[in-house]
Write a protein that binds this DNA or RNA. Sequence first.
DNA 1: AAGCTTACCGACAAGTTGTCGGTAAGCTTT
DNA 2: AAAGCTTACCGACAACTTGTCGGTAAGCTT
Lengths: 208, 208
Amino acid sequence: MRIVKTAEERKNEILDVAEQLFAEKGFDNASTNDIIKRIGIARGTLYHHFGSKEEILDALVERMTRDAIARSKAVVSDRSHPLLDRLTGAIIALDINDGAGPEVFEQIHKPQNALLHQKMQERLISGVVPLISELIREGNETGAFDSKYPDEAAEMILIYSNIAFDALAGLTEEELVHKGQAFICHVERILGAEEGSLAPAIMNILNR
Amino acid sequence: MRIVKTAEERKNEILDVAEQLFAEKGFDNASTNDIIKRIGIARGTLYHHFGSKEEILDALVERMTRDAIARSKAVVSDRSHPLLDRLTGAIIALDINDGAGPEVFEQIHKPQNALLHQKMQERLISGVVPLISELIREGNETGAFDSKYPDEAAEMILIYSNIAFDALAGLTEEELVHKGQAFICHVERILGAEEGSLAPAIMNILNR
DNA sequence: AAGCTTACCGACAAGTTGTCGGTAAGCTTT
DNA sequence: AAAGCTTACCGACAACTTGTCGGTAAGCTT
């Protein structure tokens, strides 16, 4: 009466439960025992599919970031929208909690998840920087931007948005708006865009 | 023949060894057993001074960041130097490895030290942002800068310099210079400073 | 010298990760 | 259909972790 599944099926099952547990208790506090108990498999089964606990984390990070980057890429490639909309859309696509569930993104910033957070950030940055910098170059040609260092500009914008928008828990609505406006202003300056040119693009995206 | 020391002495001894070990093996891989063996104390002694392994980490982070922030503060407060020198000096003071030893800063970015890294970053940012933003306000008055959001500008500059200058391991000399120039350019734009006004200030600091 | 505070000790409980020989399910292959 | 092979699965086990706790001893007061 032993239940057998394909390797892919079982791996995804493990990742699903790992995602839940890391969100609930954090990577450090969630044990491999927690995972196997919740699924109802034996210890050996888990280690048959993944070589270590960290390997589970890596696979999970891969799965989580793949979607976000794909979404970002889709927005960037869609030339039917104006350039500025594509820029803001690509960035926003990263921050908004994907379908998987918001509780993950809420707990991700807790100290127990420092590793998860760092790995996700690394992947997101390296995956999206090329997209954004290409967009910046495009803007340079149309005259919308005037950036001397598109790669580094993209890097700076993405790193900041990833870190700074982590800790927006204890902020009032007013502070939040202020922080958002500051961000827009600084992005405009970094890109050499006209002042106020980005704000409407963000509205376009959010109301879409 | 039991060796007794004051609590402060012993605590510092523990932190010294912890710093070594975290640098050698990373926070996760260095066990409390490693610490007590290297010092030659018993398990109970360690837990008499620190309530948990994470408490050791916190104390260590405190001790490490205290110096860096103090250095930064000293530079900012020294009004005998020009404003721009104080700005660049305060930022550079954070990145340069302090006397403690460079091996710590080399290993700090490894995955096993994600927690340490995150906690240090948080403390550094929250400690130095007020200093820098005050400096920016000062520059606004003298006309050197034109920043609408001094706090967020300081935050953005500090976060980027902390993250981006982590991974400069596999870069050529040329790439490094390019990245440095890009950073200067973007800081100037964020602050609304005149183009090229920051570069000489950085030279001043580095050659001091 | 008695007493109190506190640094120190080490055995122990409870839990963690990763290993390994063995079992059984579902394939080919003949 | 039987034999054989691959591979998903099992669970006991070793080796280690962190944190606890009753007890010891050093250095203070009083």
